[in-house]
Simulated scan of single mutants.
Amino acid sequence: MKKIVKVPTSLISGPASQSALMLDGGVVIEQCIHSMEAKGTMYLEEHLLLIVLDGTVTLTYGKQEYVVGKNEMILLKKAMAVKYDKVGNPDNDNIYDSLMFSIKDELLKSFLATSDIKIPKIEGEIKTGVYPMNECLVAFAYSLKPYFFDHSTVHPGQLRLKIMELLYDVADGNRNMFLQILQLHEPVRADIRHVVEQHYASPVSLSELAYLSGRSLSSFKRDFQGIYNMTPALWIREKRLEKAKEILETTNMAVADICYSLGFENVSHFSRIFKEHYGQPPSVFRN
């Protein structure tokens, strides 16, 4: 298993500049086109709207699995480790083609402040789902293609307008998807137990866990302490070590793969704290 790729950090620092459109130093839109099956795991540092124009991608996080096909879309929340399996269209030279949009809070705030869209009331949490794209959204996606071939024609103001256009098209074309996007701005207060149990094995920060639970960082720490009678950082470390011990005892997975799959920063750090907790480094413990 490769180390989990962080998105969009890896896109910003990587050499594939022609695959991403940048705004304010960060990736706003990523294009992915290839003719070979691609598998891996990505950790989402931003909320992402994924649009598939050809082929299919299977996304797995936790116990949830979603298959996104041609002219379909899905919204993925940040602070999640998502496994992906991209497969091309056998009727079109095995081409897989998708666009991935970073939904940044500042752009969403700007849209809500300046648009004339009537904001619906959100009642309860709108669950993640795969939704069809209407003709306007499909046409919008293809209108972005020329920008990836000549970056000199892309101006920051123009790119902001394209994101606004995307949000207008989603608001007009798919109410549930739009409600999901609105929840990114004002996350629903969620059960802390559910949030931490679902995400403790991902490379997630406390501030991101707080966001996912619909709380400020200070409120999250206070509520967590009241439930578990320990700090979230200590609880997460112990849970990850328990899971690592279980994997070592029941599988032949390499120590490095266990380290990165559970969200530890590097192998040396993982080995050191594992030894502190169980008295032996992982490799010796397995033997």
Rank of each mutant, 00 (worst) to 15 (best):
R215I: 05
I236C: 04
A256P: 05
E197N: 11
A244L: 03
S213A: 15
A233T: 13
A201K: 10
F224R: 07
V204W: 01
I247L: 14
Q198C: 10
W235K: 01
D257V: 05
S213V: 06
G226S: 13
E242G: 09
L241I: 05
E242C: 06
L217R: 08
W235N: 08
A256G: 13
T250M: 01
V196E: 01
K243I: 12
R215M: 12
A244C: 06
L212D: 14
A254S: 15
F224Q: 04
R222H: 07
L209C: 05
M253P: 10
M253H: 09
V196A: 09
E246P: 06
N229M: 11
Y228K: 13
K239H: 14
A256K: 13
A201L: 11
L217Q: 04
K221E: 14
S219D: 12
E249M: 06
L209W: 02
L217V: 11
L206W: 07
S216W: 03
A233D: 13
S205T: 15
L212K: 07
E238Q: 15
G214F: 02
L241R: 08
W235M: 06
Q198Y: 14
K243T: 12
S213R: 01
L206A: 03
I227V: 12
R240F: 05
M230N: 10
E246W: 01
A210F: 00
I236W: 05
S216I: 08
A244R: 03
V196C: 02
E249P: 02
V204P: 01
K245V: 02
R240G: 12
A210C: 02
T231M: 11
